[in-house]
């Protein structure tokens, strides 16, 4: 049932992307979507009372947490960083051209 929580966070981010009219708020909503996915991935790897998956002499291992999703989260964070950086860079250039962050005023392209 705990898995509902990141899904709710995901939906909040999706709502923000669809409803907000400001470029920066859209970017923040996309970040929220990313965080929801990172949390979901980290939770998938969790095992109740699991040990960290690092081998130390003299300790007996009964239960590990799954290390693979943790590696995936790190990769996903890096990808999220690249996406956000490029989005912010484009938003800055858009502001220089249009003088506004309001997407209702940024419409030179016709349908």
């Amino acid at each position: 049932m705990v898995f509902i929580l990141p899904i709710i966070l995901f939906l909040i981010g999706l709502f923000g992307v669809l409803v907000k009219r400001n470029l920066i708020k859209i970017i923040i909503s996309i970040c929220i979507i990313d965080y929801a996915l990172f949390l979901l991935l980290a939770m998938i790897g969790y095992r109740g009372e699991g040990m960290p998956p690092i081998e130390v002499k003299g300790i007996e291992y009964v239960k590990f947490v799954d290390p693979l999703p943790q590696a995936l989260v790190l990769t996903a964070i890096v990808i999220g960083l690249a996406t956000t950086a490029l989005l912010v860079a484009i938003a800055v250039r858009v502001y220089q051209k249009y003088g506004t962050f309001d997407i209702d005023k940024i419409r030179k392209l016709k349908g």
């Binding site: 250039r93 030179k108 392209l109």
Partner: peptide, 11 residues
């Protein structure tokens, strides 16, 4: 300006 707008939408 058109290209930046399209790129933002696309991204």
């Amino acid at each position: 300006s058109e290209e930046l707008e399209a790129a933002f939408k696309y991204q």
